[in-house]
């Protein structure tokens, strides 16, 4: 086997990619730069950014890692909507110009990079357990040495819900959709006392801060449906206070 230059699928369609640029002290205030790429049928927005960085501007900064919607790092806004850029097809956007911008809510660091510390601060107090029992193939027997099948949680902590949430955008103390969904999971998995969990979310920064816009559920790329889980937690909080439940 010799060196092979293996390309990408045909045909190629020229597309403009308009990217928000920001380098504190250098490109400041932010501006938009437009690049041209030849999009192929499999090209994602992340592939386009990779191509631009490799061939046109090596200073372009963006977050990415797994390229298959499992790590959650490459979340950004594409044509105004929060998405995982690694599974957002360029040509399926149907626009000649693709506008790429960083997530909102979280502070901007540079170009398309936001500070995930803000997400962590809101999310982490829920207590994180990334593993759950697998609900797939429940009819299957488990192999010797394995008590039950496990899988990683669906939430990939990408920050999309926090960016899409109109409350989180304006209220820094709001726990936010991902954090409240994590509290829900802790409760159903029995990680901690239910009364402690309900007390933690029974506040204006918790379940009562939500305005029910449901943008989080709409935007979530992993079907976590945080908005629905917040409503479930509200019901549980109210139920726990009813006199006949004591």
């Amino acid at each position: 086997m010799s060196d092979e230059v293996i390309g990408r699928p045909d045909p190629k369609t020229p597309v403009s990619v308009k990217i928000l640029r920001y380098k504190p002290g250098a490109i400041d205030p932010p501006r938009y730069d437009t690049f041209q790429v030849d999009a192929d049928p499999l090209m994602t927005v992340l592939d386009a950014l990779e191509e631009i960085r490799a061939t046109q501007d090596s200073t372009l900064a963006y977050r990415h890692s797994c390229h298959h919607a499992s790590c959650g790092t490459c979340a950004m806004k594409v044509n105004g909507k929060e998405v995982l850029s690694c599974v957002t097809n360029v040509l399926e956007q149907g626009t000649d110009v693709i506008v790429v911008e960083p997530l909102g809510t979280m502070p901007l660091v540079t170009d398309l990079v936001v500070d995930m510390g803000d997400f962590a601060r809101r999310y982490e107090p829920a207590g994180l357990s990334f593993i759950r029992e697998s609900e797939y193939l429940t009819e299957a027997q488990t192999p010797e040495g394995v008590d039950h099948h496990t899988r990683f949680e669906s939430c990939i902590e990408c920050g999309i819900c926090l960016s899409a949430c109109p409350v989180a955008n304006t209220n820094a103390s709001f726990i936010g959709p991902a954090g409240l969904a994590a509290y829900y999971r802790a409760m159903v998995k029995g990680d901690g006392e239910a009364t402690d969990i309900l007390a933690a979310v029974d506040t204006d920064c918790g379940v009562w801060g939500c305005h029910g816009a449901m943008e989080c559920t709409e935007a979530c790329p992993s079907q976590v449906e945080p908005g629905d889980l917040i409503m479930y937690l509200r019901r549980e909080v109210v139920k726990s206070k009813l006199p006949w439940n004591h």
Partner: peptide, 24 residues
């Protein structure tokens, strides 16, 4: 298997430039 996905892999070829791998 991973989360709610199944990942099938993989193939193998030599690439002269690790920044431009392609996707045949």
């Amino acid at each position: 298997p991973q989360r709610e996905l199944s990942v099938i892999g993989t193939s193998s070829w030599f690439a002269p430039d690790p920044d431009r791998l392609g996707l045949p």
